[in-house]
């Protein structure tokens, strides 16, 4: 392989990791939420509110760390609100999610008007010592910022918690058979409240990554549909964090590849290249779901259904 090509591929891969990170956070969050049986399609709105809150708090306090925490708290609060409507009021979860998207879009745009163009501290690049010196792997994975590195830990951690711990068992039981779980002494509602809040907090963090690390400032509708992509990726990932990582990297890789192919002067229509990320997601989604037709479904059985305790 000549040097130019390998440099090109490394740049594509580094761009892939960057572009995938915000979507990955939202996808991981949604996996936790959906494993508990709550469907939250309002990720787009939650990401937007997270992105805005991150900028606003960072601007007020000059601390990116506080901005990120605030973004998570904002997401958490929206998640709790969603859970309240979905669990206590047993509202249609898709309806609530869409309302949440409209609400989040409007709220962030309205409050964010004063924050457009404000100079803020942003999340700086932090090359991991030693690791970033490894050829190929270093520049691709270890020359970003801490939020990127956090996903490397978060993905196996969430997978471990869901599959190997008592907490994960509780979560899955609530999402699969809430009544049996309740009979076994699990507080179904509380578990779902916590799962939805945690999931939304991660989505908020994904939004803050867009505004604090990527675009380095707030602009209206900064997510540009990434929340919806995350909702789709959960299906693709069949509720598995590792597959979510693959899905998010596919999406991010396609974005990064198409832009860099253009920069490299490849003779393909930019419209076709621009479609690439979305076509890939649709394609992989249909292939991966078609193949498992006869295999046991991985959809949490109680997903989206209101839990009505026997009184």
């Amino acid at each position: 392989m000549n040097i130019e090509l390998s440099e090109f591929l490394i740049a594509v891969a580094a761009g892939m990791v960057r572009s995938a990170t915000p979507v990955l956070y939202a996808t991981l969050g949604e996996i936790i939420t959906e494993r508990s049986g709550i469907l939250n399609v309002g990720l787009e709105g939650i990401m937007l509110v997270g992105a805005f809150t991150g900028v606003a708090i960072t601007y007020q306090t000059h601390s990116v760390g506080l901005g990120l925490v605030a973004a998570m708290i904002a997401g958490l609060l929206l998640g709790l609100f969603h859970a309240l409507l979905a669990i206590y009021f047993q509202a249609n979860q898709v309806g609530v999610g869409i309302a949440m998207t409209i609400f989040g879009t409007g709220l962030s745009a309205y409050l964010g008007m004063d924050y457009v163009g404000k100079q803020i501290n942003t999340l700086g690049t932090f090359k991991l010592p030693l690791l970033s010196d490894i050829p190929v792997i270093g520049p691709i994975f270890f020359s970003h910022d801490i939020l990127v590195y956090a996903t490397f830990i978060l993905v196996p951690l969430i997978a471990f918690i869901i599959n190997r711990t008592r907490l994960g068992l509780t979560l899955r039981a609530v999402g699969e058979e809430p009544r049996s779980a309740a009979a076994a002494g699990i507080n179904v509602e509380l578990t779902r409240y916590i799962a939805t809040a945690c999931g939304a907090a991660l989505a908020g963090l994904g939004g803050a990554y867009l505004s604090l690390a990527y675009a380095q400032g707030w602009s209206e509708n900064i997510t540009a549909g990434r929340g919806w992509i995350a909702v789709g990726l959960v299906l693709f990932a069949s509720w598995n964090p590792f597959r979510a990582l693959i899905g998010a990297y596919l999406f991010g890789g396609a974005i990064s590849l198409q832009l860099r192919l253009q920069a490299a002067g490849l003779d393909v229509s930019p419209y076709l290249l621009g479609m690439l990320p979305y076509v890939l997601v649709i394609l992989v989604l249909s292939i991966s779901t078609a193949r498992r037709k006869n295999a046991p479904s991985s959809v949490p059985t109680a997903l989206g259904l209101p839990y009505i305790p026997q009184v």
């Binding site: 572009s19 675009a215 540009a224 990434r226 832009l259």
Partner: peptide, 17 residues
């Protein structure tokens, strides 16, 4: 080309490319 009037993250990635 980004094929969008406004999408900050894609614009940034295009610039980095």
């Amino acid at each position: 080309w980004t094929n969008t009037w406004i999408d900050p993250a894609t614009e940034v990635e295009a610039a980095k490319g």
